[in-house]
Amino acid sequence: MLGVGLAVASAVAFAFTNYYLRLASRDLRQGSVTAWSSITGFIVAILIAVGFRESFAGIDGWGWVSIAGIALVWFIIGRYLMIMGLRLIGLSLTGPMMGTIPIWALLLAFFFLDDQIGWTQVVGVSMSTFGLIVMSRAGR
């Protein structure tokens, strides 16, 4: 039950993140919002890691490459593009489009990690694609 509560709380927190970044992107350029939000993102992350007495030792070369890749796709390219989306088409369209993240994860795992896709996943991808078309036409 605690785990479910934490997961719901994280979903609410991500939604508020999108909302605040949308508000900021009305006044500031998207690059600027990306840069400013990185400051507190880093401070909070380092405080929590140190608070939980996590060890930063023993990361090998591949670990560093992976972390750099995560930084690039989550917090540099991903965040910049999301803020650009928030700025150009607003929260009401960008937010639901973030719902396609599992679809992209599935497709990337299929193409690059040779994961299998069953017929239910094909139906899921088709449903999401149809939803994207409906939303795009509605928001125009």
């Binding site: 992350a45 992976s66 995560i70 965040r79 992209w104 994860a105």
Partner: peptide, 29 residues
């Protein structure tokens, strides 16, 4: 952005198998 986050999800799930998620998050940030 969604595609980028989707890729990040795949990469993160592989990375946190061997490293602490909080350490990965702090260094990535």
């Amino acid at each position: 952005a969604a595609a980028s986050f989707g890729g990040a999800q795949v990469l993160t799930s592989a990375t946190v198998e061997t490293l602490s998620p909080l350490v990965v998050l702090a260094i990535a940030q």
